[in-house]
Design a protein around this nucleic acid. Structure first.
Lengths: 109, 109
DNA sequence: TTAGTATATTAATATATTCTTATATTATCG
DNA sequence: CGATAATATAAGAATATATTAATATACTAA
Protein backbone atom coordinates (compact mmCIF):
# COMPACT_ATOMS: atom_id res chain seq x y z
CA UNK A 1 0.00 0.00 0.00
CA UNK A 2 2.61 2.51 -1.10
CA UNK A 3 1.05 5.90 -0.64
CA UNK A 4 2.70 7.36 -3.72
CA UNK A 5 1.21 4.62 -5.86
CA UNK A 6 -2.21 5.14 -4.32
CA UNK A 7 -1.97 8.83 -5.15
CA UNK A 8 -0.78 8.01 -8.65
CA UNK A 9 -3.80 5.77 -9.17
CA UNK A 10 -6.15 8.54 -8.01
CA UNK A 11 -4.39 10.87 -10.42
CA UNK A 12 -4.73 8.52 -13.38
CA UNK A 13 -8.30 7.75 -12.44
CA UNK A 14 -9.05 11.48 -12.38
CA UNK A 15 -7.47 11.95 -15.78
CA UNK A 16 -9.56 9.16 -17.20
CA UNK A 17 -12.76 10.56 -15.65
CA UNK A 18 -11.91 14.04 -16.90
CA UNK A 19 -11.47 12.68 -20.40
CA UNK A 20 -15.00 11.29 -20.10
CA UNK A 21 -16.28 14.64 -18.89
CA UNK A 22 -17.19 16.17 -22.23
CA UNK A 23 -20.40 15.48 -24.15
CA UNK A 24 -18.79 15.01 -27.54
CA UNK A 25 -16.32 12.52 -26.15
CA UNK A 26 -19.11 10.59 -24.47
CA UNK A 27 -20.89 10.49 -27.81
CA UNK A 28 -17.73 9.20 -29.45
CA UNK A 29 -17.54 6.41 -26.88
CA UNK A 30 -21.21 5.69 -27.35
CA UNK A 31 -20.74 5.44 -31.10
CA UNK A 32 -17.68 3.21 -30.77
CA UNK A 33 -19.70 0.66 -28.83
CA UNK A 34 -21.00 -0.39 -32.21
CA UNK A 35 -17.49 -0.99 -33.52
CA UNK A 36 -14.45 0.79 -34.87
CA UNK A 37 -14.99 4.07 -36.69
CA UNK A 38 -12.71 6.36 -38.65
CA UNK A 39 -12.10 9.98 -37.73
CA UNK A 40 -14.14 11.07 -40.71
CA UNK A 41 -17.05 8.80 -39.88
CA UNK A 42 -17.18 10.09 -36.33
CA UNK A 43 -16.82 13.70 -37.41
CA UNK A 44 -19.69 13.13 -39.82
CA UNK A 45 -22.09 11.30 -37.58
CA UNK A 46 -21.46 13.54 -34.57
CA UNK A 47 -21.31 16.75 -36.55
CA UNK A 48 -17.78 17.69 -35.54
CA UNK A 49 -15.06 19.42 -37.49
CA UNK A 50 -12.31 17.09 -38.57
CA UNK A 51 -9.72 18.72 -36.34
CA UNK A 52 -12.02 18.77 -33.33
CA UNK A 53 -12.78 15.08 -33.73
CA UNK A 54 -9.11 14.31 -34.15
CA UNK A 55 -8.20 16.20 -31.00
CA UNK A 56 -10.88 14.53 -28.91
CA UNK A 57 -9.77 11.16 -30.22
CA UNK A 58 -6.14 11.90 -29.46
CA UNK A 59 -7.07 12.80 -25.90
CA UNK A 60 -9.14 9.67 -25.40
CA UNK A 61 -6.27 7.68 -26.77
CA UNK A 62 -3.82 9.36 -24.41
CA UNK A 63 -5.94 8.51 -21.38
CA UNK A 64 -6.15 4.89 -22.47
CA UNK A 65 -9.79 4.84 -23.52
CA UNK A 66 -9.24 4.28 -27.23
CA UNK A 67 -6.81 2.57 -29.51
CA UNK A 68 -6.18 3.38 -33.15
CA UNK A 69 -5.12 1.39 -36.16
CA UNK A 70 -4.43 2.58 -39.62
CA UNK A 71 -5.76 1.05 -42.85
CA UNK A 72 -4.28 2.91 -45.74
CA UNK A 73 -4.90 6.58 -45.20
CA UNK A 74 -7.78 5.94 -42.85
CA UNK A 75 -7.35 5.68 -39.08
CA UNK A 76 -9.89 3.65 -37.18
CA UNK A 77 -10.48 4.14 -33.48
CA UNK A 78 -11.92 1.56 -31.13
CA UNK A 79 -12.61 1.18 -27.44
CA UNK A 80 -9.64 -0.40 -25.68
CA UNK A 81 -12.05 -2.41 -23.54
CA UNK A 82 -15.84 -2.58 -23.32
CA UNK A 83 -15.42 -1.96 -19.60
CA UNK A 84 -15.09 1.73 -20.35
CA UNK A 85 -18.41 1.80 -22.13
CA UNK A 86 -19.91 -0.19 -19.28
CA UNK A 87 -18.67 2.35 -16.75
CA UNK A 88 -20.12 5.14 -18.89
CA UNK A 89 -23.40 3.29 -19.06
CA UNK A 90 -23.57 2.91 -15.31
CA UNK A 91 -23.03 6.64 -14.91
CA UNK A 92 -25.66 7.24 -17.57
CA UNK A 93 -28.03 5.06 -15.57
CA UNK A 94 -27.51 7.21 -12.50
CA UNK A 95 -28.45 10.29 -14.52
CA UNK A 96 -31.51 8.67 -16.02
CA UNK A 97 -32.75 7.42 -12.67
CA UNK A 98 -32.36 10.88 -11.27
CA UNK A 99 -34.33 12.39 -14.15
CA UNK A 100 -37.05 9.82 -13.60
CA UNK A 101 -37.16 10.55 -9.88
CA UNK A 102 -37.62 14.21 -10.70
CA UNK A 103 -40.35 13.38 -13.25
CA UNK A 104 -38.26 14.96 -15.99
CA UNK A 105 -38.28 11.78 -17.98
CA UNK A 106 -41.23 9.55 -18.66
CA UNK A 107 -39.97 6.87 -21.00
CA UNK A 108 -36.76 4.94 -21.22
CA UNK A 109 -34.22 6.43 -23.62
CA UNK B 1 -36.09 9.12 -28.46
CA UNK B 2 -36.28 12.91 -28.37
CA UNK B 3 -32.93 14.15 -29.60
CA UNK B 4 -32.89 17.14 -27.26
CA UNK B 5 -33.32 14.84 -24.28
CA UNK B 6 -30.57 12.54 -25.53
CA UNK B 7 -28.24 15.52 -25.80
CA UNK B 8 -29.32 16.69 -22.38
CA UNK B 9 -28.45 13.32 -20.90
CA UNK B 10 -25.01 13.40 -22.52
CA UNK B 11 -24.53 16.86 -21.08
CA UNK B 12 -25.51 15.83 -17.57
CA UNK B 13 -23.43 12.69 -17.86
CA UNK B 14 -20.44 14.80 -18.89
CA UNK B 15 -20.94 17.11 -15.94
CA UNK B 16 -21.05 14.17 -13.59
CA UNK B 17 -17.91 12.65 -15.11
CA UNK B 18 -16.13 15.97 -14.97
CA UNK B 19 -16.97 16.30 -11.30
CA UNK B 20 -15.31 12.92 -10.81
CA UNK B 21 -12.26 14.07 -12.76
CA UNK B 22 -10.23 15.50 -9.92
CA UNK B 23 -8.05 13.46 -7.56
CA UNK B 24 -9.18 15.15 -4.35
CA UNK B 25 -12.80 14.64 -5.26
CA UNK B 26 -12.18 10.98 -6.00
CA UNK B 27 -10.55 10.69 -2.59
CA UNK B 28 -13.58 12.31 -1.02
CA UNK B 29 -15.83 9.77 -2.70
CA UNK B 30 -13.51 6.98 -1.64
CA UNK B 31 -13.63 8.17 1.94
CA UNK B 32 -17.41 8.53 1.93
CA UNK B 33 -17.80 4.90 1.01
CA UNK B 34 -17.15 4.26 4.70
CA UNK B 35 -20.04 6.50 5.69
CA UNK B 36 -20.99 10.13 6.18
CA UNK B 37 -18.23 12.60 7.03
CA UNK B 38 -18.22 16.25 7.99
CA UNK B 39 -16.40 18.92 6.02
CA UNK B 40 -13.83 19.20 8.79
CA UNK B 41 -13.25 15.46 8.96
CA UNK B 42 -12.67 15.27 5.22
CA UNK B 43 -10.46 18.33 5.20
CA UNK B 44 -8.42 16.73 7.99
CA UNK B 45 -8.10 13.23 6.63
CA UNK B 46 -7.41 14.35 3.05
CA UNK B 47 -5.20 17.27 4.03
CA UNK B 48 -7.33 19.96 2.41
CA UNK B 49 -8.02 23.50 3.50
CA UNK B 50 -11.47 23.96 4.88
CA UNK B 51 -12.60 26.16 2.03
CA UNK B 52 -11.16 23.87 -0.60
CA UNK B 53 -12.96 20.90 0.88
CA UNK B 54 -16.16 22.88 1.08
CA UNK B 55 -15.91 23.90 -2.57
CA UNK B 56 -15.25 20.38 -3.78
CA UNK B 57 -18.15 19.12 -1.71
CA UNK B 58 -20.46 21.81 -3.06
CA UNK B 59 -19.56 20.82 -6.59
CA UNK B 60 -20.12 17.12 -5.95
CA UNK B 61 -23.43 18.03 -4.41
CA UNK B 62 -24.40 20.14 -7.38
CA UNK B 63 -23.72 17.29 -9.80
CA UNK B 64 -25.81 14.93 -7.70
CA UNK B 65 -23.02 12.81 -6.31
CA UNK B 66 -23.40 13.82 -2.68
CA UNK B 67 -26.11 14.84 -0.28
CA UNK B 68 -25.65 16.89 2.86
CA UNK B 69 -27.43 17.05 6.17
CA UNK B 70 -26.80 19.35 9.06
CA UNK B 71 -26.48 18.35 12.70
CA UNK B 72 -26.07 21.47 14.74
CA UNK B 73 -23.24 23.44 13.23
CA UNK B 74 -21.75 20.41 11.54
CA UNK B 75 -22.65 19.42 7.99
CA UNK B 76 -22.28 15.78 7.03
CA UNK B 77 -21.90 14.70 3.45
CA UNK B 78 -22.75 11.27 2.10
CA UNK B 79 -22.90 9.52 -1.23
CA UNK B 80 -26.33 9.84 -2.80
CA UNK B 81 -26.07 6.26 -3.99
CA UNK B 82 -23.38 3.58 -3.74
CA UNK B 83 -23.68 3.22 -7.50
CA UNK B 84 -21.44 6.27 -7.86
CA UNK B 85 -18.70 4.65 -5.83
CA UNK B 86 -19.19 1.44 -7.82
CA UNK B 87 -18.72 3.33 -11.07
CA UNK B 88 -15.57 4.93 -9.67
CA UNK B 89 -14.33 1.52 -8.63
CA UNK B 90 -14.86 0.10 -12.08
CA UNK B 91 -12.85 2.95 -13.57
CA UNK B 92 -10.21 2.39 -10.92
CA UNK B 93 -10.07 -1.25 -11.97
CA UNK B 94 -9.40 -0.26 -15.56
CA UNK B 95 -6.47 1.86 -14.41
CA UNK B 96 -5.06 -0.87 -12.19
CA UNK B 97 -5.33 -3.49 -14.91
CA UNK B 98 -3.52 -1.18 -17.27
CA UNK B 99 -0.74 -0.60 -14.75
CA UNK B 100 -0.43 -4.33 -14.27
CA UNK B 101 -0.30 -4.95 -18.00
CA UNK B 102 2.52 -2.44 -18.21
CA UNK B 103 4.30 -4.06 -15.25
CA UNK B 104 4.08 -0.82 -13.33
CA UNK B 105 2.24 -2.49 -10.51
CA UNK B 106 3.11 -5.78 -8.87
CA UNK B 107 0.67 -6.16 -6.01
CA UNK B 108 -2.99 -5.40 -5.61
CA UNK B 109 -3.67 -2.02 -4.03
C1' DT C 1 6.07 13.17 -59.17
C1' DT C 2 1.70 15.59 -58.65
C1' DA C 3 -3.05 15.92 -57.11
C1' DG C 4 -6.25 14.56 -53.93
C1' DT C 5 -7.96 12.59 -49.55
C1' DA C 6 -7.63 11.47 -44.55
C1' DT C 7 -5.54 12.74 -40.21
C1' DA C 8 -2.72 15.25 -37.14
C1' DT C 9 -0.59 19.24 -35.23
C1' DT C 10 0.10 24.15 -34.12
C1' DA C 11 -1.09 28.50 -32.48
C1' DA C 12 -4.43 31.74 -30.90
C1' DT C 13 -8.40 32.90 -28.39
C1' DA C 14 -12.17 32.25 -25.26
C1' DT C 15 -13.80 29.96 -21.43
C1' DA C 16 -13.50 27.09 -17.31
C1' DT C 17 -11.20 25.22 -13.27
C1' DT C 18 -8.46 25.12 -8.99
C1' DC C 19 -6.49 27.07 -5.23
C1' DT C 20 -5.87 30.79 -1.97
C1' DT C 21 -7.06 34.69 1.06
C1' DA C 22 -10.47 37.15 3.07
C1' DT C 23 -15.05 37.55 4.53
C1' DA C 24 -19.76 35.94 5.46
C1' DT C 25 -23.15 32.82 7.33
C1' DT C 26 -25.05 29.56 10.71
C1' DA C 27 -25.21 27.43 15.04
C1' DT C 28 -23.63 26.63 19.91
C1' DC C 29 -22.40 28.09 24.44
C1' DG C 30 -21.81 31.10 28.29
C1' DC D 1 -25.97 39.52 23.65
C1' DG D 2 -20.82 38.39 22.40
C1' DA D 3 -17.36 34.81 21.50
C1' DT D 4 -16.25 30.74 19.27
C1' DA D 5 -16.63 26.84 15.97
C1' DA D 6 -18.09 24.88 11.55
C1' DT D 7 -19.16 25.78 7.06
C1' DA D 8 -19.94 28.61 2.94
C1' DT D 9 -19.09 32.17 -0.42
C1' DA D 10 -16.47 35.77 -3.12
C1' DA D 11 -12.77 37.55 -5.68
C1' DG D 12 -8.44 37.04 -7.86
C1' DA D 13 -4.36 34.69 -9.93
C1' DA D 14 -2.56 30.71 -12.19
C1' DT D 15 -3.42 26.93 -14.96
C1' DA D 16 -6.09 24.00 -18.03
C1' DT D 17 -9.45 23.15 -21.70
C1' DA D 18 -12.16 23.58 -26.10
C1' DT D 19 -12.64 25.44 -30.40
C1' DT D 20 -11.09 27.34 -34.63
C1' DA D 21 -8.24 28.41 -38.71
C1' DA D 22 -4.18 27.31 -40.81
C1' DT D 23 -0.66 24.18 -41.79
C1' DA D 24 1.64 19.75 -41.81
C1' DT D 25 1.95 14.81 -42.46
C1' DA D 26 0.63 10.22 -44.44
C1' DC D 27 -1.18 7.69 -47.85
C1' DT D 28 -3.32 6.59 -52.63
C1' DA D 29 -3.78 6.84 -57.35
C1' DA D 30 -2.91 8.63 -61.76
Amino acid sequence: MDNDIVMEVFQLQAELCKSLGEPKRLMIIHELRKGARSVGQLAGSLNLKQCTASQHLALLRKTGVLSAHREGSTVYYSLITPKIADACDSIREIIIEKLKRNHLLTSVI
